[in-house]
Amino acid sequence: MSYLQNHLLIAMPSLEDPFFERSVIYLCEHNEEGAMGLTLNVPLELNLYDLLVQMKLPEPSEHLKEVPVLAGGPVHNDRGFVLHSPQPGFHSSRQLSDELMITTSLDILSTLGTDAAPEQYLVTLGYAGWEAGQLEQELLENSWLTVPASLDLLFDTPMVDLWQAATATLGINIWQMPQQAGHA
């Protein structure tokens, strides 16, 4: 099996898990040891401004009140992750692709809303994780569709439209998918 790092997982309509139903997940890592991703379309009842105030960071920009913080997944939902366009200089960053980095250190948060911030970014609390072989089994069970990630889907598509927009890149309407899929 080829690995799906830098791809999106799109929940099939039949996936009824309360957290993952109709979710779109960016896979930051996928290898023989398992997978780790960030859910991109489940907002928390928390905006970025309020999060930065709670963390006692310097007075954030008012426009961050319009930026949602996302529920990245059910694992370690007390840990923050910033998925962003490449920008070096943060303490704990990892290059995911030519177009994306992930940072987990606090130093990036103080730049958000300023000229020093990455051009594009999403902030999540928590992540989705799979043990070795677990995601592959879920793929065999037809729980997920996969598409290569694109900056347009990640940063420019409204969150409420992401599930359908990601599926549309495959040339299908998600609502026309059967609830149960078989294997030939």
Score class of each variant (00 low, 15 high):
Gln180Ser: 13
Thr169His: 07
Ala168Arg: 13
Trp175Met: 14
Leu112Thr: 02
Gln176Trp: 10
Val147Lys: 04
Leu151Lys: 04
Ala149Pro: 00
Gln120Tyr: 14
Thr146Glu: 10
Leu162Ser: 06
Phe155Thr: 05
Gly133Tyr: 03
Leu162Pro: 05
Leu154Ser: 03
Gly171Asn: 09
Ser143Cys: 14
Ile174Leu: 12
Trp175Val: 13
Asn173Ala: 12
Ala116Trp: 01
Gln180Trp: 06
Ala166Gly: 08
Trp175Thr: 15
Gly133Phe: 10
Ala132His: 03
Gln176His: 14
Ile174Trp: 10
Glu141Phe: 08
Thr111Ile: 06
Gly133Gln: 02
Val160Thr: 13
Glu141Thr: 02
Tyr127Pro: 01
Val147Gln: 06
Glu136Gln: 14
Asn173Gly: 07
Pro178Met: 06
Ser150Gly: 09
Ile172Ala: 11
Ser105Cys: 07
Glu141Pro: 01
Trp144Lys: 09
Leu125Ala: 00
Gln176Pro: 05
Val147Leu: 08
Asn173Trp: 07
Met159Gly: 05
Trp163Pro: 03
Met159Trp: 02
Ile108Gly: 00
Glu119Asn: 13
Ala166His: 01
Thr111Val: 11
Thr111Leu: 07
Leu122His: 02
Ala166Met: 09
Met159Asn: 08
Ala128Tyr: 00
Ala117Asp: 08
Glu141Arg: 08
Thr114Trp: 10
Asn142Gln: 12
Asp115Ser: 11
Gly129His: 05
Gly113Phe: 04
Val160Cys: 07
Ser105Tyr: 03
Val123Gln: 00
Ala132Leu: 10
Ile172Met: 12
Asn173Lys: 11
Asp161Asn: 12
Leu153Ile: 07
Thr167Tyr: 08
Leu151Gln: 07
Leu109Cys: 02
Gly113Ile: 03
Leu151Cys: 06
Gly113Pro: 10
Ala165Tyr: 02
Trp175Asn: 15
Gly171Ser: 07
Gln134Leu: 08
Ala149Asn: 05
Ser110Ile: 12
Ser105Glu: 04
Thr169Trp: 03
Ser105Pro: 01
Leu122Lys: 05
Leu109Gly: 02
Asp152Ala: 15
Leu139Ile: 09
Ala165Val: 04
Leu139Gln: 05
Gly171Pro: 06
Ser143Ala: 14
Trp163Gly: 08
Asp161Pro: 06
Pro158Val: 04
Glu131Gln: 15
Ala116Arg: 05
Val123Pro: 00
Leu135Gln: 04
Asp107Trp: 01
Trp163Cys: 09
Leu109Asp: 00
